[in-house]
């Protein structure tokens, strides 16, 4: 392949991957919620995609093609890793099937998450920011906040529940 073509191809691939990466990561996290694990799978997926990029039919959506690879890499990861408790193969299949038919909530997250984040209490907001945006562990947050690790987990988990309730309320409001 001429160098120029190769560079164009690489740029094209990078662009498609950048566009699809957030949605792919979110889908991977359904089966593998831990972010570092999901990123590891994403990285393996990106390598596999690049190796097979010549076979990609550009008349079809890249993300659909790429998600097939992500599913394979996710299965490989789950088969070799046992660091954390995992969902069963059947449960993951059921979730993947449902994911294909339930996109409305994804759109709702995109539309309403920022609004709902603004409605969290100060404490919850600080923890969500620390946990997700700053990438701090619950242990680090525990030290910073002067609370137990268990309390940190509970607040983060309760906050996600509140965000889900808020987004569902926003969906109902928009449909009313």
């Amino acid at each position: 392949m001429p160098v120029a073509d190769s560079e164009d191809n690489h740029e094209h691939f990078t662009r498609l991957l950048l566009e699809s990466e957030p949605a792919m990561l979110r889908s991977i996290q359904v089966a593998v919620p831990h972010r570092a694990d999901a990123r590891e799978i994403m990285q393996e997926t990106a390598v596999a995609l690049w190796r097979q990029f010549d076979t990609f039919d550009s008349s079809r959506p890249f993300i659909n093609w790429a998600m097939g690879f992500a599913r394979i890499e996710t299965r490989r990861f789950l088969a070799r890793e046992s660091r954390r408790a995992q969902l069963s193969e059947k449960a993951i299949e059921a979730l993947e099937l449902e994911m294909e038919h339930s996109t409305e909530f994804d759109y709702a997250i995109e539309s309403h998450l920022a609004t709902c984040l603004g409605k969290l209490s100060e404490k919850s907001s600080r923890l969500i920011k620390g946990y997700y945006h700053e990438g701090r562990s619950p242990e680090a947050l525990s030290k910073r906040e002067g609370r137990t690790v268990e309390a940190i987990y509970k607040t983060i988990q309760r906050s996600r529940g509140e965000l889900q309730t808020c987004i569902e309320r926003q969906i109902r409001k928009a449909q009313a």
Partner: peptide, 26 residues
Amino acid sequence: YLKAARIHGALGDEVISFDLESTPPR
């Protein structure tokens, strides 16, 4: 589960987390 996992994924999404930086606590 799917909804909760989607929110968890979206919060970790760098694109959406951009909002967090500018969204101060209530």
